[in-house]
Design a protein around this nucleic acid. Structure first.
Lengths: 229, 229
DNA sequence: CAAATAGTGTCTCTTAGACAGTATTAT
DNA sequence: ATAATACTGTCTAAGAGACACTATTTG
């Protein structure tokens, strides 16, 4: 897998990818964490991630590490930022490329976590634990990115299953932004965004209340007009 | 300068920084380019940049390379994206961390380009030349970032000298967005943004027309409300 | 004086948000 | 029936953009 190359002439380094995978479960924003099997931070929680192979793209490495460490396959994956403080890894000079991934709340087991050491944990709980390296900063930065992207990108749909209701979409916004949104205005607003939502023609009924129309995400890459906080 | 470390155990790589420095000169958006002294792309233009030292932060490396290769000192510097395609550098596995920098149009010579091989060139001209590595993609990505940030960040002020008029600020927007903006509405709009502009109390007269009030940039990090295109 | 730029006034049209009211379900 | 959710209607206030008009300079 890992090819050889000539010994380094200049300052060399390891390059790793780390991934913040977000989902909404039990009405809370949750993040995928793994239990570390080695020092530093042995036994504690950390973000999934690992070294990039020699013949591998960054995004490919992120997907591979995610699959290996958590068993997850994500549809939304985006580079956030690269961390390069000289002492960020006490062992060797290592650069960390952070990725943000987003998943729907799939039923436990279905493409879920085969890996024993992987678990969903509410974001605020993980933020309160002692994370190794600069994983705390990474989590904060990824969250900020996700919050910002809700406004102008269809990323919220990545938190939903392929077919979803506007109520489900609204909950994503409410939970991630931590605010309450007027259902009536939110419905009008999202439907008015060009190519954001595509009506399926079906409706679903979940619990009491009028059945909701279902939608799939459209071709829009930018929300125009944006959904303001 | 470059410390030693133990020989690599896993896939190692070189890490470089590349910088897109933008300014507005002669009413055009221009970018700093250097003439390459080695292959690949020998004799052609390229973005300034170079390898990160072992004991150096990424941003520090970007500032150092910029100083060494172009003699420039910038105030605005921001990480954009990291490029990691396995074949992006034909010689060795090299990751490239892209930075966006912005400068005012300083009078030629003053903290200008000591370096012979560095030059300002209009962005569209550099885009039309044959750039080495993935510098073309980098330039496109940096431009998109700059255009987007005009809307919601005070980055436009970084294109201006410490004290500037609203007319000068408007020109930055017009040139970078490639659109015409209504001077009256633009003036009202920018002045209404919280903590964006701070009046100096002075006015300056450049050519014909009523003298303009001058401003310095305020404490705002986010423009609220934003300046829409 | 004319031409050019800075800045104010005002009008119109669109949109965001508040909130009342109607539709349709589970229990 | 009651409660809960989905969705429509409507009003109000704020904001964006068009554009006329005033202010102050250079030549």
């Amino acid at each position: 897998m890992t090819k050889r190359q000539k010994p380094p002439k200049y300052s060399w380094a390891y390059v790793a990818v780390d991934i913040v995978v977000l989902t909404v479960r039990d009405r809370r924003l949750q993040v995928m964490a793994i239990r570390r099997g080695r020092k530093p931070g042995l036994g504690g929680l950390a973000l999934p991630g690992g070294f990039v192979h020699l013949d591998e793209d960054l995004e490919t490495a992120a997907r591979r590490e995610l699959r290996e460490e958590t068993g997850l396959e994500v549809d939304f994956l985006e580079q956030v930022k690269t961390y390069g403080a000289p002492d960020r890894d006490p062992r060797n000079r290592t650069f960390g490329v952070l990725y943000l991934a987003v998943m729907p709340n799939l039923p436990e087991g279905a493409a879920g976590t085969d890996a024993d050491d992987a678990q969903w944990i509410p974001v605020d709980e993980l933020l309160a634990t002692d994370l190794p390296f600069d994983h705390h900063d990474m989590l904060v930065d990824a969250l900020e990115r996700a919050r910002a992207k809700l406004e102008y990108s269809p990323i919220a749909a990545s938190f939903c299953r392929p077919t979803f209701t506007i109520g489900q979409l609204r909950q994503v916004y409410e939970i991630i932004w931590g605010v309450g949104l007027d259902p009536a205005n939110f419905s009008r607003k999202t439907r008015s965004v060009d190519d954001f939502l595509v009506e399926t023609g079906d409706t679903v009924s979940e619990g009491p209340g009028r059945p909701a129309r279902t939608y799939t995400v459209g071709s829009a890459t930018v929300l125009n007009p944006p959904i303001n906080r």
